[in-house]
Every structure is written in C-alpha cells, then in structure tokens.
Nucleic acid binder design. Structure first.
Lengths: 126, 126
DNA sequence: TTTTGTACCATTACACCACACGGTACAAGT
DNA sequence: ACTTGTACCGTGTGGTGTAATGGTACAAAA
C-alpha cells in the first residue's frame, strides 16, 4: 500500500484516498479479504486528520469496496474489483441532468432551480 | 397601484415586487391591458435600482402576467389572472424532489448530490 | 430629443457549504 | 489496557451564488 497525498492537488484529500485505494484494488495490489490500516493508523502515517480518513473509508464501504467489521478492523470487500468499476457518480449526474434539462426547457431560471434545490436539500423529510 | 417595499423583509426586493403585482392582478386592482409604470419610473418611485425592477418585470413576463411591447411600454397580459395562479414553483419542486429522493435512496450522500448539482449548473451545455 | 426595454461592464455585502481540522466519548472486541 | 469504528461537539478557510447597486450603451418609437 503506497498511498501518496498531495496537498497541492485541487482534489479533496478524502477523494485522493478513495481514488488510490480503488486503484490499488483494480491493479491487484491488494486482494479481497486483505486487511487495511486502521483509520487512526493511516491518518497518522499520512499526517491527516482521522476524520478525513474516516470519511474516505465510509464512502468506500458504501460502494462495497471495503468492509468494516466493527472492532476487528477494515478489510477489502470480496467483490471489491467489480464494485470499483461501478461509477455511482455517472448515474447521479444522469438523473440530475435529466431533471435540470426539463426544468430549463420549461423556462425556469437557473437561479430559481438553485433556490428550489437548496430548499429541498435542507428539509430532511422529503 | 400601491406598491410597498420593505427593506427589512427577508424576501428579496424583486420578489416583493413580483408578489404584489400578481396580487394586484388577482384582486382586480389592475385590469388586463392596463399599462404599467416604466421600469425607470417605478424604480424612481420606489427608490430602487432599475435593474431590480427590470428583474421583476422579466420574471412576470416569463410567467405571462405582463406583456412588454418594446418601446411602447409594459402592459398587463390578457390572461394575467389565469397565469397568476399557475405556480411554476410547485412543478419545479416536484420534479427536483423526485430526482433527489431517488438519489438518496440509492445511498448517495447529500454532499455528493450538491457537488454534482453544482457542476451541472455551471456547464451551460447540458 | 426623450423614453422605451434591454444588454453589457462592474462592485459590494451576505450567506451557505465543502473541506479539513481538533477534542471527546462510546460499546465491543483483542 | 489498548484498539477498533463511530458519533457528537466545535472552529476556520475558501469557494460560490444571490441580491442589489452603479454606469454605459443600443435600436426603435413617440
């Protein structure tokens, strides 16, 4: 596991982590079932805040790339390689893009779309 | 036409204008075809910037509540009363709400939705 | 000439959010 | 005791969008 963090990079630190771990899985540098460094450990090695590493791990687990087994540590998910290629971002963009295009075609101002969006995102109960 | 602008109100000035003009139409205080003050004139009377009034007029015309006939001035739209009740906002909220709910159910973070949304809104070519 | 709506340049203030950071605390396992 | 992931409180910075302001300019009609 050779992870490099570039503070100068415009990409967020947690995103760099996610990206590099996914890459390591895809290039067979880590095999499924293998243990990952603990959050605090990795944060210490990379001189990052533990919250930053925790955020990366949380996202990776949501994508089923890693598996956190509570007090036993974190491991590479059995189906990690498959789930790495599934890009959640594209489906998000597609869904939103459709809605936005439809609204714009209906004559709705970008500003109005932003306002409505902001209101919706603040209400937890949709 | 008695329009009152409250600077202390949290509602944007242009929104107050839109609201009050729509209200005047609904309450038959102005009839279809009647002329409205010019942008500069109204801005002067209310001590607002002409751009602020222009923005309100632009929105009202998009909703077909008023009609701008170029150099002849601005008038109340023939179907103003009907178009006043049509709330564009509700259809916007419904459309967006659907998309957001779907994404959230798919495990997408609110933060990620916001990022994707922001990126889409900045790219003119969708 | 003056007025009409409109378009472009710009600045200011304000608010929200993402990101990263710090500290503290917890239950459950080694 | 120590570590695990996780959750809560918080702070600060930078980016970005809205809202409102100002100035200048245009073509077309009165």
């Amino acid at each position: 596991m050779d992870i490099t963090i570039d503070i100068e990079d415009s990409a967020p630190l947690f995103a760099q982590l996610v990206e590099q771990i996914k890459e390591a899985v895809l290039k067979d540098k880590i095999s499924p079932g293998a243990p990952l460094p603990s959050i605090r450990q990795l944060a210490n090695d990379l001189r990052l805040n533990s919250k930053t590493v925790a955020k990366a791990y949380r996202l990776l687990e949501r994508d089923s790339v890693i598996q956190t087994r509570g007090y036993r540590g974190t491991f590479i998910h059995p189906d990690a390689k498959i789930n790495c290629t599934v890009d959640l971002g594209e489906w998000v963009i597609a869904k939103l893009s459709d809605a936005i295009s439809e609204l714009r075609d209906g004559g709705v101002t970008d500003s109005e779309i932003r306002i409505a969006f902001g209101n919706l995102m603040n209400k937890r109960t949709i």
